[in-house]
């Protein structure tokens, strides 16, 4: 279970007003209202010539280091996102549902917050339903995003158990949609 130190909670609360302001500005207003939001995609893009994934070794918001190299043998969804990014916020609950559905079968989700600090990311997590239980990594200088060739947020990659990038998703995606799940399941590690 995730337990936050009280000083982190206080820090998170201190940035909440600014955060809500940003969400209001870029989210609801930027798209003209909920009914007009661009639809999330339901499919991932197949990478025709899978290549080894770039290195990814970052700390999460609890200070725990995660290294993609340690996850060989698992199917890994790497998601680059930011708290102020409306499609990132919209797709994240679907990542949690996907994670809950398949983590016992070998799925790992690593959500990499680009250019943001621990307090900002932590404050954000309490606004999601369901809240993410997978690691939220901090790419504070956005170097990892650049190393992975990310040009816009959100961008996600699926790494197969051999460590190769096999699928990608540019733009907000409903990861637990049946069409996306159908693409992912064949790559889950064999029992």
């Amino acid at each position: 279970m995730f337990v936050a130190p009280i000083d982190r909670i206080r820090a998170g609360l201190s940035v909440l007003p600014a955060l809500f302001l940003c969400f209001g500005t870029v989210g609801a207003v930027g798209t003209g209202g909920a009914a007009d939001l661009p639809p999330l995609s339901h499919r991932l893009t197949l990478i025709e010539d899978p290549a080894p994934a770039p290195p990814l070794r970052l700390e999460d918001i609890d200070g725990v280091e995660h290294d993609l190299a340690d996850l060989k043998g698992r199917l890994v969804l790497v998601n680059f996102w930011a708290t102020w990014c409306p499609p990132c916020r919209r797709e994240m609950p679907s990542m949690e549902r996907l994670y809950q559905q398949f983590k016992e079968r070998g799925l790992t989700v690593l959500a990499v917050a680009v250019g943001e600090d621990m307090d900002t990311v932590f404050a954000f997590t309490g606004q999601l339903d369901p809240a993410p239980t997978f690691p939220l990594l901090l790419d504070t200088d956005s170097r990892a995003a650049q190393d992975w060739g990310v040009k816009g947020l959100p961008t996600s990659f699926v790494i197969d158990p051999e460590g190769r990038v096999i699928l990608r998703a540019v733009g907000g995606t409903e990861f637990d949609d049946a069409a996306a799940v159908e693409q992912l399941v064949p790559y889950l590690p064999k029992p």
Partner: peptide, 27 residues
């Protein structure tokens, strides 16, 4: 620096490739 980083990532990408179904939203 941190504000410039936020600015850079909040912008619509300067260049990008989209397979069918892919998209971006930015300033």
């Amino acid at each position: 620096d941190s504000a410039r980083l936020a600015f850079r990532w909040a912008q619509f990408p300067s260049e990008q490739s989209y397979a069918p179904g892919e998209w971006n939203q930015g300033m």
